[in-house]
Write a protein that binds this DNA or RNA. Structure first.
Lengths: 258, 258
DNA sequence: CGATCGTTTGAGTTTGATCAAATGTGGTGG
DNA sequence: CCACCACATTTGATCAAACTCAAACGATCG
């Protein structure tokens, strides 16, 4: 049984997962790759629970997840926490802070996570010199938006079981795309409370529904890792279709179609 | 009582609302404005209910809403419709189709709507010559994503009354930003079924909740137009804070702050 | 070896869904 | 101008998914 590489590895080449992701769509030029690697040298290590960016906090450069797992969230007036999405290695998690005047949500990490931090100056430099990177990052904000829209569908229309199934499928596909999942296995250092706040459910109900998924031999959650026992069955159960993740290589800008 | 301009006006200068929107953040150059106006000459008129772009349909240029109202949606396997967001005049509603390989959702219009259609060639031309437009449009996809995230919060965490209140606040602020609302008045050609599909509620429950909003003297829906009787009260009721819409002028890229 | 955090289980409650039918309303054609 | 149709809104009654509260159990860690 092949286990996916641990997300706790040293951040050798923090940019590699990002490059991999961008190149799924359109190949980068050699100098673009090099510039990214160069810019992502400064890494930072965050402990589980630490906040990486704060709502209405100052905006700065960019943060690239190298290993671990982060989540976007907002805290409501009454103290409830709403989780808005997850960021996996290779994701730039705070693009809004580059082009908008302020963050409109916060970001924290689920486990020990290493990130590369790019200063605003180096990012501006990068984007001015390499329009290909602008296209690539812009594309990735479009995919982020598509994921958020799918969350709207998920939370708005589906039952608890469907929601959980769908979320696990999303994370599995995204992690697999950067080589961090395979054979139905992924490390998922996520609590049932996190799941509840992500899906608009109570943690009690998440617990019961997870048991049901387990009973239907679709998915087993064991500690910090998840095993998908029947991917096709799980996708069916969550009416999951990977299209919106835009993970396959094909670039509409140059007519190439696969 | 000043009524907002009707959205049914002829599409003189379809680009004007877009320019207005982009310039809320960073001023455009004269030639950028001119190029946008030039590119947005070809307009199309759609009847209520018509589909403007189809999920997994071909991707092409860009569509700019000139007047009217459009909504993004997905149809689930069981036939239910999930509405993912609204596009108001000045919005480019199909940016995903420019940079991604396919649309992952469909777009239709609520009322008779006029749109300007920009061919892929002219858009590419525009973006190559005017990096300021790239920044502006990229920013607008970031705002779209922020709106989707707020929908996740809204649907995931709030009660029916809060959801409705919040949605009306969003639309009011967005319409006011392009001069189509004011004094608590806006044209809102939206059915209760649309609202239900937007908020993850049944239309029956939407109806009852609207009555409650009316009773609390917060909002009155009359036919195709809405009157906000108490904006502050409505924002409170929906715990709405306009920050995420990023409607105020301030550009982090040049240190200028309001 | 407590202490803390996460998971699990039980019991009662609530919000909002579903089903069904009546009541407007706007548009069309005879 | 009226009859009719389609569509939207409104109301009532019943039901179920998911919530809340409460408490016990289990793991992990300094």
């Amino acid at each position: 049984m092949v286990i996916a590489p641990s997300p706790y590895e040293p951040a050798v080449g923090a940019a590699s997962a990002l490059i991999r992701k961008l190149e799924r769509f359109a190949p980068l030029q050699e100098d673009e790759r090099a510039a990214l690697v160069e810019a992502a040298q400064r890494v930072r290590r965050l402990m589980a629970g630490e906040t990486l960016a704060h709502e209405s906090g100052p905006t700065g450069g960019l943060t690239l997840i190298a290993s671990g797992l982060a989540y976007r969230y907002k805290i409501l007036p009454d103290g409830r926490r709403s989780i808005l999405g997850f960021s996996v290695p290779g994701d730039v998690c705070d693009l809004p802070s580059l082009l908008l005047d302020r963050m409109d949500h916060s970001i924290a990490v689920c486990v020990q996570t290493t990130v590369a931090t790019l200063s605003r100056e180096s990012v501006n430099d990068l984007l001015e010199r390499h329009p290909g990177l602008v296209r690539g990052l812009w594309r990735s904000t479009l995919v982020d938006a598509a994921i958020s829209r799918e969350w709207v569908v998920n939370i708005g229309q589906r039952t608890a079981l469907e929601r959980l199934a769908h979320l696990f499928c999303e994370l599995y596909h995204r992690l697999r795309a950067v080589g961090l999942a395979g054979d139905g296995l992924m490390e998922l250092p996520i609590t049932q409370t996190d799941l509840a706040d992500s899906l608009g459910l109570s943690s009690v109900h998440v617990n019961r529904t997870l048991q049901e998924l387990r009973r239907s031999r679709l998915l087993a959650l064991r500690g910090k890792s998840a095993e998908i026992l029947d991917l096709e069955g799980l996708e069916d159960a969550g009416s999951f279709h990977a299209g919106y993740l835009h993970l396959d290589r094909s670039d509409p800008m140059d007519g190439r179609r696969r």
